Amino acid sequence: MTDFIRPVPRWLHVWAVLAVLATLVLLAIGQLVTSFGAGMADPVWPTEPWYVFHTATEAEKERFRKDYAFFLEHSHRIAGWTIGGVVIVLTGGLWWTEPRKVARWWALGGAFVLIAGYSEFHRGLRTQHSTPAAEVTIPAGAAAVATIGAANMVAVAVFGLLARTPGASVRLLGSLSLVAVMIQGLLGGFRVKLNELVGADLAAFHGIFAQVVLGLLTAVAVLTSRQTPEIGTSTRRLGRWASVLAVVVFVQVAFGAMVRHYPVPLSQRLHFATAFLATGLAVWVLRAVLVDVAALTRARGVTWVLAALLVVQLYLGIEAWLAKFGAYMLPELVPVTPEGGAIRTLHALVGSGVWAAALALALRLGGRRTSEIVH
């Protein structure tokens, strides 16, 4: 008989799921920032996590309590710091399960160097938060230290993957998640700091890269869960189609981010076209899973979640489109009402949920490495 053994302790799976849920909360706040145009409510960056509670002036603290845009922007920053802490714990916990002692400490050392370098990089920028963007000096030394730490950590994970070490794939994804979260934080900050130089060009990329972070954390959550390892040929085939679906959904969500920031005819057409493609492919994949007993056994929960999210997303997509483009005026001139902002935010957030669910379905149907199975 074949039994699956988790590559990591159960608490790490629970923590990974919490990381995904927390990331969705962060995305929700970020979408509210975009919907209500609060991205530049405070042009001062970087700031400490406790800025509005301790470092800020009394006027800024009062503004945090009364100015909705200022409140949203700093809530987004605080949530970002929180996710960073959650992912640090997740990555450290994953590496603590590394069976090779030397590799474990080498990777943990790399993670420590990465965090220290990133902190120093952030501190170096924080001392220049009042400096004009064109005159800011990038802390190159700290950036180099952080890069060395990240490279060491990821390299150990890759070598473990090549050596078929149990849980190596999860540790690699966890390491990449930590690096991605740090990059995402910098993208969000530079979107504010460099606004006077490049405008909102970084905003769309910041929104798209957020989906990469969500995808990495979703993969960690799925691959640390318990499931039966036996996979038939038909299930593997469905897994490949589910992977195609996940890619299409990601592209569609990316075009959605472009529409939110650059509602030009091309981005609108691409968003619409990929929406039709993603919907048709999703319906076909879901139907195939529902009639395949083995596939449904492996992915029953995520299948129904994806189906439900897809229905909700279609409705929200229609409402969001009519609210923004059905007013017979330029999209950027349409006033954002609380109802309209809520619909746009929900549409973007549910889209992220569809992407995460599609990816989870692909991973659930994709099977396990033999190194993670005990016979």
Score class of each variant (00 low, 15 high):
Asp3Thr: 11
Pro7Ser: 00
Leu12Gln: 04
Leu12Lys: 02
Trp15Lys: 01
Ala22Leu: 06
Thr23Cys: 05
Thr23Leu: 07
Leu26Gly: 00
Gln31Ile: 00
Phe36Ser: 01
Met40Asp: 03
Pro43Glu: 04
Val52Lys: 01
Phe53Ala: 14
Ala56Gly: 04
Glu60Ser: 11
Glu62Met: 07
Val86Tyr: 05
Val89Pro: 06
Trp95Pro: 02
Glu98Lys: 02
Ala107Arg: 03
Phe112Trp: 09
Leu114Ser: 09
Leu114Ala: 13
Ala116Gly: 06
Ala116Gln: 06
Leu125Gln: 13
His129Ile: 08
Ala140Gly: 02
Ala155Glu: 01
Ala155Thr: 11
Val156Asp: 03
Leu162Pro: 05
Arg164Gln: 12
Thr165Gln: 14
Thr165Met: 10
Ser169Lys: 09
Ser169Gly: 12
Val170Arg: 06
Leu173Ser: 06
Val181Asn: 04
Leu187Pro: 06
Arg191Met: 15
Leu194Gly: 03
Asn195Glu: 14
Glu196Ala: 14
Val198Trp: 13
Ala204Lys: 11
Thr218Gln: 09
Ala219Lys: 12
Thr224Asp: 05
Thr233Leu: 11
Ser234Ile: 07
Arg236Ala: 13
Trp241Ile: 07
Val248Thr: 07
Val251Arg: 04
Phe255Val: 03
Ala257Trp: 02
Tyr262Glu: 08
Pro263Asn: 06
Phe276Thr: 05
Leu277Glu: 02
Leu286Lys: 01
Leu286Cys: 01
Arg287His: 08
Ala299Met: 08
Ala299Arg: 06
Leu309Met: 11
Val311Leu: 15
Val311Arg: 03
Val312Trp: 09
Ala323Met: 14
Ala323Tyr: 15
Lys324Met: 12
Leu330Phe: 12
Val336Phe: 05
Thr337Ala: 13
Glu339Ala: 15
Leu349Ser: 12
Leu349Pro: 09
Ala356Lys: 09
Ala356Asn: 10
Ala360Arg: 10
